[in-house]
């Protein structure tokens, strides 16, 4: 991989899209502020960790849309050919897309989110004792890491589907998640011999009902850590690699 090419690709993207990114940032700020306004206005209906909720909705919503624009050229064959003909390798183009939509976006998002959260905290601290969201409390950063997995899936979708790639990727993701949920419940029931499993998370744990109470069965801590690392660090790498493979196949 040539770092000069990578830098040039990033510069091109930023130069061509800078106006859009600036406007997008303003829209994101407005959307986050609106979400905070909604959860504050109907605070009795929105109990719990509302700042965490707003953070995740904003991150996955805007991050997904932003990631889907990385290879939007593929939606039109002429533009797609132009993208493929840019003098840089597939790996450099994929790396540029990951750097922009994965890492740079996350940094920009954190800035915009904390600006909005800061205003929310400022206005509500005195009456409600609100404090800014702490990403490191109770392992919340694991969910932030899950953004990279989501990023990998959306990037892969944008090179797999030509038309309406974002919508199609979300649809496939939804179907896979529903299937995984039922398949995992079924599998856990068969393996454990427990008949009334009502919920489960693949590679993590399950719960079953016993005399009206949910009993939780989780992986031992060390195995759970390995599972977390696989889901949040290894899986994104796998999806980014498959995206690269698919991109190369398009070149051929």
């Amino acid at each position: 991989m040539n770092l000069v090419n990578l830098t040039l690709l990033l510069k091109r993207q930023l130069k061509e899209q800078s106006q859009l990114y600036l406007l997008g940032s303003l829209v994101l700020f407005g959307l986050l502020a609106t979400l905070f306004l909604i959860v504050h206005h109907w605070r009795d209906s929105f109990g719990g960790a509302v700042q965490n909720g707003v953070f995740l909705i904003g991150l996955f919503g805007s991050g997904g849309i932003f990631t889907a624009t990385m290879f939007q050229e593929f939606s039109e064959s002429a533009k797609g050919i132009w993208l493929l003909s840019i003098p840089a390798t597939a790996a450099e183009k994929i790396a540029a897309a990951i750097l922009l939509s994965g890492f740079a976006f996350l940094v920009a998002y954190l800035g915009i989110y904390y600006l909005t959260d800061g205003l929310y905290t400022l206005l509500t601290y005195q009456k409600y004792g609100t404090t800014p969201l702490n990403l490191f409390r109770n392992g919340f950063y694991w969910l932030v890491c899950a953004y990279f997995l989501f990023n990998g899936i959306i990037l892969l979708g944008s090179v797999y589907f030509t038309k309406l790639s974002f919508v199609k990727t979300l649809l496939v993701l939804l179907l896979v998640l529903v299937f995984l949920n039922y398949a995992n419940n079924f599998l856990m029931g068969i393996i454990s011999g427990i008949p009334n499993i009502n919920s489960s998370t693949p590679l993590s744990g399950f719960q079953f009902e016993h005399q009206g109470e949910n009993i939780y069965v989780n992986l031992p801590e060390n195995i759970d850590s390995i599972s977390n690392i696989f889901a949040r660090a290894v899986l994104p790498l796998i999806f980014w690699s498959i995206t690269w493979l698919r991109f190369r196949e398009k070149e051929v």
Binding site: A183, N184, P220
Partner: peptide
């Protein structure tokens, strides 16, 4: 394979 393995570990935990 991961789901199957965790299933057997969870059986022991249960």
């Amino acid at each position: 394979a991961g789901m199957l393995t965790t299933g057997f570990i969870l059986k022991k935990e249960a």
